[in-house]
Amino acid sequence: MDSTTFEVQSLFYHNAYAGCIALAQKHAPHGIVDDASLLQLVYAARAALALNDVPGARQLVGEDAEHPAAMSVLLLADLKEMKALGDDAGCADVLEQLMTLLDVVEPGELTSEIVRCNVGLALYESGDKEKALETLQVTGQGGNTQLECVALGVHILLTMHRVDLAEAEYLAARHISDDSLLVQYMEAWIGMVRGGRATQQAYYVYDEMSQNTTIAHTAHQVPALVGKTVAQAAQAHTTDASSTLNEAAQLDAVNPLVSANQAVLAALTPATSSTNAERLAQQHAQAQPASELTQLWESKRRELDEALAAVA
């Protein structure tokens, strides 16, 4: 993998989707012409889908794309459109087409990993978590060397409250590549879900990620800073969390992650700030649904309130 493709991939892993798209477009302005441009534009198209920009994703890989990795992105775009229309039959047809791609990719290639991950994502977003895990080949016992699939599988396991299986997959992944961005993020996710002292390790991960030279001092740094904010707040370090979130706001004030977590952080301040908290919460509610990170933070806040009430 060349350095540009690696940087595009890294931006995608950091959830710096706008930066991923911009860099891919800069280095592959003529569309898919070789293996490098294929990977760059596929990652960019996946980033566009994460931003719910279906037309943008289609444009990045081209409607007539024939490579399985690009086709899997186009089918994910189809699935989003079918869901928006409430077309269950159409969704089922798209899922069937996605499954057939698994039979035509070459095992061991990165594009094969991307296809499998996209199929697993489609199944997960369609509500079939068990089949998604089966497709991703994430069983809770380790053994899968495709880290994108493992990372998605860990996320799914955490949504199923199987922290034990998620941690087993994470520990196995560490033996494959302990310095991988995905492996480090897995550690942070598990730490945040476990709570308690584990949130301190999650903080260290997000703090280190926020200093990564690929994203530092740019708007691409915001997701890592928000993760750091959540970890600080989970440890009741609200002043530090506020400072970190202000740093993120200075880089990208309109990022929905920032506004969502501003509302949550305001709710953690003294009662004198309740009016401001309600205002921020209302503003974000009008903008878009709360992120999964925000929902996790809110659940941790409720647990803290209940614990404090119990010992009062």
Rank of each mutant, 00 (worst) to 15 (best):
L76E: 09
E106F: 07
L76W: 08
L79S: 04
E106G: 04
K83G: 12
A69N: 10
G140W: 08
E81C: 08
D103P: 00
V119I: 15
M71D: 02
V150T: 01
L152V: 12
M99V: 13
D103I: 00
V104E: 01
A89F: 12
N144C: 04
S126G: 15
V115A: 02
A77Q: 04
A77S: 10
L79F: 07
I114R: 05
E109L: 11
V115Q: 00
S72W: 02
S72A: 14
V119P: 04
K131T: 12
Q146K: 03
P68M: 06
H67Y: 15
Q97L: 08
A132R: 12
D88A: 15
D87E: 09
T145D: 10
G108P: 01
V94F: 00
N144D: 02
S126N: 14
V73A: 05
N118E: 09
G120D: 09
S72M: 06
D78Q: 04
V150H: 01
L102P: 01
A151W: 04
T135L: 05
I114D: 00
V94C: 00
L136F: 10
E113N: 06
S112D: 06
G143P: 03
L79Q: 04
A132K: 11
L98N: 03
P68S: 09
E113D: 09
A70F: 15
T135W: 06
G140Q: 07
E96D: 11
L101V: 05
M82K: 15
E148A: 08
D87R: 06
L121I: 13
D128Q: 15
I114A: 05
K83N: 10
L74C: 02
Q137K: 07
A84H: 06
L85M: 13
E148Y: 14
K80P: 03
T145I: 10
G153M: 08
S126Y: 13
L76K: 06
V105L: 01
A70Y: 11
L133M: 13
L85P: 01
L133Y: 14
V115W: 02
A70I: 14
M71E: 06
R116H: 05
L98R: 02
C149V: 00
E134N: 09
C91V: 08
L136D: 05
K80A: 12
L76T: 11
V115M: 04
R116M: 07
Q137L: 08
E113K: 04
S112K: 03
E148P: 04
E106M: 10
L76H: 10
L121V: 14
E66P: 07
C117M: 13
V150K: 02
E66R: 14
Y124F: 15
C91R: 11
A92G: 05
T111D: 12
V150S: 01
A151Q: 05
V150Q: 02
L75G: 00
L102C: 04
G143S: 01
C117S: 13
T145Y: 09
Y124I: 10
C149R: 00
L76C: 14
V104M: 03
V105G: 00
C91K: 14
L110E: 13
Y124A: 12
L76S: 10
V105N: 00
L123Y: 12
S126L: 11
L101R: 03
L152I: 14
E81R: 15
V119S: 06
V104W: 01
V94H: 00
L147D: 03
C149I: 02
D128F: 15
G90Q: 03
D128T: 13
V119T: 09
M99T: 15
A84C: 04
K80I: 12
V105W: 01
K129W: 15
G127S: 13
L147P: 04
E81M: 07
G127K: 14
